[in-house]
Simulated scan of single mutants.
Amino acid sequence: MPHSARARRWPLASALLLLGSLGIAAAWILLADARNAQSSWMAVVAAVDAAWLLRLARIRPGALRALAGTAATALAILIASFGIIAAQLARPMGMLPWESALKLGPHHAWTLAGLANGPVDIAWLVAGVVIAAVLSR
């Protein structure tokens, strides 16, 4: 396959990964809100989703594909964590989750994420990133 044909696949793959990260993060936020738990095991689901999307886009295996899958998984973890915190803060304040998200700053979110995520949650998040690197390569 010519180099230009492979290079043209990256915009599609990037768009797929961005949409996939946003979609899996939205599902994760809804699940966590319904269960009233962090549901950190969803990081593994995000990793599998990112690897599958890269294969669907027919990106050639290698370090760049592994990096892309890992980055997409990390993005899903960040968005989901921020959204879960915003949703948990919104209810007692009488706000909608997206209103809370607009008022939530990164430092406050980081502090609350540190308080909400225990060792098991951290292990699931790290496992998700590692699995993304392995499955995406």
Results as ranks from 00 to 15, higher is better:
Gln88Thr: 06
Ala113Lys: 00
Ala27Thr: 15
Val48Arg: 08
Lys103Tyr: 13
Leu22Tyr: 04
Ala43His: 01
Ala116Asn: 14
Val44Tyr: 12
Thr111Glu: 08
Val48Cys: 08
Leu18Gln: 07
Met95Ile: 14
Pro92Cys: 12
Met42Glu: 06
His107Gln: 08
Ser40Phe: 01
Leu112Met: 02
Pro92Ala: 10
Leu135Gly: 00
Trp98Glu: 08
Ala74Arg: 05
Leu17Ser: 01
Ala57Ser: 13
Ile131Gly: 01
His3Phe: 09
Gly94Arg: 08
Ala109Met: 06
Phe82Asn: 11
Leu96Ala: 15
Ile79Val: 13
Ser136Met: 04
Ala66Tyr: 02
Arg65Thr: 08
Leu67Ala: 15
Ala86Trp: 00
Ala34Pro: 07
Ala25Ser: 11
Ser39Asn: 08
Val45Arg: 00
Ser39Glu: 13
Ala87Asn: 10
Leu17Lys: 05
Ala57Met: 12
Met1Gln: 14
Trp124Met: 04
Ile131Gln: 02
Gly69Asp: 00
Ser39Ala: 11
Ala90Tyr: 12
Leu18Val: 11
Trp110Phe: 03
Ala25Lys: 00
Leu115Glu: 07
Ala34Ser: 15
Gly83Glu: 00
Ala63Glu: 10
Pro2Cys: 09
Pro92Gln: 11
Thr111Cys: 11
Ser136Thr: 02
Ala90Asp: 02
Pro61Asn: 06
Pro2His: 11
Met93Asp: 11
Arg8Ser: 13
Phe82Gln: 10
Ser4Lys: 10
Ser39Ile: 03
Ala71Ile: 14
Val120Lys: 03
Leu89Lys: 05
Ala27Glu: 07
Ala123Thr: 08
Glu99His: 10
Ala47Leu: 13
Val129Gly: 05
Ala109Ser: 04
Val45Gly: 01
Arg9His: 09
Met1Ala: 12
Ala90Lys: 03
Gly69Glu: 00
Ser100Cys: 11
Leu31Gly: 09
Thr70Gln: 06
Trp98Lys: 15
Gln38Leu: 13
Ser81Gly: 14
Ala127Cys: 15
Gly69Ser: 02
Phe82Cys: 07
Ala76Cys: 14
Pro11Trp: 04
Arg35Ala: 14
Arg55Val: 02
Ala47Pro: 10
Ala27Tyr: 09
Leu31Val: 06
Leu12Pro: 03
Trp110His: 13
Gly114Asp: 04
Lys103Val: 03
Pro92Val: 11
Val48Met: 07
Pro61Thr: 11
His3Tyr: 05
Ala74Gln: 08
Lys103Arg: 12
Gly94Cys: 10
Gly128Phe: 01
His3Lys: 13
Pro2Phe: 12
Pro106Lys: 02
Arg65Val: 04
Leu19Glu: 04
Trp98Thr: 15
Gly20Ala: 02
Ala66Lys: 01
Leu125Ile: 05
Leu18Asn: 07
Arg55Leu: 01
Ala71Thr: 07
Ala80Thr: 03
Ala27Leu: 14
Gln38His: 14
Ile122Thr: 11
